[in-house]
Computed example of a mutant assay.
Amino acid sequence: MTHFNDLQEKRRSIYALSKEIEKTDDELFQLVKTAIKNTPSAFNSQSVQAVVLTGDAHDKLWDMTLNELAKVSSSEEAFEQTTQKIKGAFQSGYGTVLYFTDQKIVQGLKEQAPLYADNFDDWAEEAVGISLYAVWLALAEAGIGASLQHYNPLIDEAVKQEFHIPENWVLRGEMPFGAIKAPAAEKTYTDDDARFKHFK
């Protein structure tokens, strides 16, 4: 088995995170930048933008998320369960990567290549997926656990105001990361015959 396949198996959704990691903030920032810069995007649009939060900024993000969730929670019991999840699986980590799509770039592509205009939103989503997967693999290679969350669009406005995000950047996902306190459960797979076909 190749190193890449080994790495794919190593990359899992890790929810038992802590703040005790060996890399510096600058090293983590460089890891994220390098992974995203080398990912493909339609027309080389580079529409994916990222913000790395560590320290107080990371903690503040999840406090803000809880504040927004409190406004829409169905009950006190439900909110308490959500609070435990946020604090125990996300805020307990070392940092968070925020992924954005620059809609100004996407709109510009629609105007430049109208023949493909209906496809650019889908292609931008593909670019986000490729980018976050690349970062996830890079974190896994470094022995750092992560998961992918989607509290957008609930937290969009609070994030924009707090971290001075450009108006044309649209939040597409949040990736808390940190030291791995406990591994993920064993992964199960759908039967190959139900997913894959090969014609010769």
Rank of each mutant, 00 (worst) to 15 (best):
K87T: 10
G129A: 08
L171Y: 03
K71Y: 01
A70N: 09
A70F: 01
G88H: 00
G129V: 11
G95R: 06
Y99H: 07
S131N: 10
D121C: 00
A127P: 08
G108P: 05
L154E: 00
D121Y: 04
G108L: 08
I144G: 10
I155K: 03
E141G: 13
Y94V: 08
K85T: 13
Q149N: 10
Q161G: 00
L132F: 15
D118S: 15
W136K: 08
L137K: 11
R172N: 07
E77H: 10
W136Q: 13
A158D: 06
E167K: 05
N67D: 11
V72C: 02
D102M: 02
D118K: 11
G129W: 10
Q103R: 11
F90R: 06
Y133I: 10
E141F: 14
S75E: 12
D102V: 07
P153V: 02
Y133R: 14
A89F: 09
I130S: 12
I165Y: 00
K104S: 15
F163Y: 07
I105D: 01
P153M: 03
S74N: 12
H150S: 01
S92K: 13
E77S: 15
L98K: 01
P114K: 08
T96H: 05
E157N: 00
A146H: 09
F79A: 14
G129K: 04
L109G: 08
A134T: 14
E111L: 08
V128P: 09
L69V: 02
S147Q: 15
L109T: 08
Q81P: 03
A127W: 07
G95Y: 04
E80N: 12
E162R: 00
R172C: 05
E77P: 12
V106S: 03
Q84E: 15
L171H: 02
Y133D: 09
F163H: 02
E167G: 05
A117T: 14
A138V: 13
Y116N: 15
F100W: 04
A138Y: 04
A70E: 12
K160L: 01
Q103K: 07
I155L: 03
S75A: 11
V106C: 11
F79N: 07
S73D: 06
I130R: 07
Q112I: 10
I130V: 15
E68D: 01
H150W: 02
Q161S: 06
Y99T: 04
Q91L: 06
Y151K: 02
F79Q: 14
A89C: 15
S75I: 11
S92R: 05
L137I: 03
I155A: 01
